[in-house]
């Protein structure tokens, strides 16, 4: 069996998703079924640790590519094996129902079954998450946020849920709340360099929004710079981190000279000299990454082409300005 099916990234390119879902009939045919109930079925059909993970991933990929029959087949096997009351299976079944629903009315029906099941068992976290995902895809973001807050009240160490909450708040333009949620994620996974970079990005965007005053801009920009620095500390040659660092330091260099001395802040803004140095460092490292990945040097080929193009554009924009 393909290893990609055991641990596929969620955001798969369409070609790969198609390829995986086309494997489904073959896998379904090659793994035999049995009519015996679960503990006895082990006698006739061997199963490995990956077997059911593969089925689970197949359900999603098949639903994604519109191969509902294969998805149903995989789902039936999972139900046969684990029973309909299994939390994970309930969530998967719900996902199938969502995907095949034709209009909003049917989706409302799915939502109702979710509500009923959650009322029966409020500890079913997976189903509660599915409900939130459904609310989000129905564009009822406010309902989604309130359900998510409820869920987090019950289980405040769920980093995934905090990250989702941050995304929802961010989509509503509530940057302060989004930042707070991401900080909660960092309390749980303090070494996640991607989250540090994401937090830096949100802080940067918050610093750009027109409604905030000068002191706030300076504060969130310097915080953003520090977050990007931390992400770079945790991951060498982190392109996203350097990109963000360059943007924030550049903006800070514009803002810093006009800002007055702030002695009351608990963390004073960085000195112009430091920011200047960091800006130079970011520019140098970005240029190095772009150059070495373009010439396909060994150890430098793993970067995302889209990110490389964006970094090159950023650098080009700067040099054009200097030329003028």
């Amino acid at each position: 069996m393909s290893t990609d099916l055991v641990n596929p990234p969620v955001q798969l390119q369409p070609e790969k998703a198609l390829h995986l879902s086309q494997l489904a009939p073959q896998i379904l045919k090659s793994s035999p079924t049995t009519s015996l109930p679960y503990p006895l079925s082990l006698l006739t059909t061997p199963e490995s640790q990956e077997t059911w993970v593969v089925y689970e991933n197949l359900v999603f990929q098949c639903l994604r590519t519109g191969d509902d029959d294969s998805a149903k087949e995989c789902l039936d096997r999972l139900v046969d094996r684990f029973g309909e009351d299994n939390e994970r299976i309930m969530a998967l079944c719900g996902m199938y129902e969502e995907a095949v629903a034709k209009d909003d009315k049917e989706l409302e029906g799915v939502l109702k079954t979710y509500n009923k099941a959650i009322q029966a068992d409020p500890t079913n976290m997976l189903l509660r998450k599915r409900k939130i995902a459904l609310l989000k895809s129905l564009s009822r973001t406010n309902d989604a946020i309130s359900s998510l807050v409820e869920l987090l009240d019950a289980s405040p160490i769920d980093s995934e849920a905090w990250a989702e909450l941050s995304e929802l708040y961010f989509s509503q333009g509530m940057y302060q709340q989004a930042i707070f949620s991401l900080e909660e994620v960092l309390l749980i996974t303090p070494n996640a360099w991607t989250i540090h970079a994401r937090l830096g990005e949100i802080l940067y965007i918050h610093g750009q929004s027109p409604s905030v005053n000068d002191a706030e801009i300076l504060k969130s920009l310097s915080e953003s710079m520090r977050r990007f620095c931390r992400s770079l500390e945790l991951c060498n040659d982190y392109l996203r981190g350097y990109y963000g660092l360059k943007l924030t330091t550049k903006r800070l260099l514009d803002v810093l000279p006009s800002a007055g001395k702030q002695s009351d802040a608990d963390l004073p803004p960085p000195s112009t000299e430091t920011v200047h140095k960091l800006h130079e460092l970011a520019t140098r490292k970005l240029a190095e990454i772009v150059r070495r990945s373009a010439s396909k040097e060994k150890g430098w080929e793993g970067f995302d082409p889209a990110e490389i193009i964006a970094a090159r554009e950023l650098l080009d924009r700067e040099t054009q300005k200097v030329d003028r």
């Binding site: 969620v10 976290m125 599915r130 995902a133 995304e167």
Partner: peptide, 12 residues
């Protein structure tokens, strides 16, 4: 944990 990659909240 990244946007759009959370398994619990898959947007099918």
């Amino acid at each position: 944990l990244e946007d759009g990659s959370r398994r619990g909240f898959l947007d099918v």
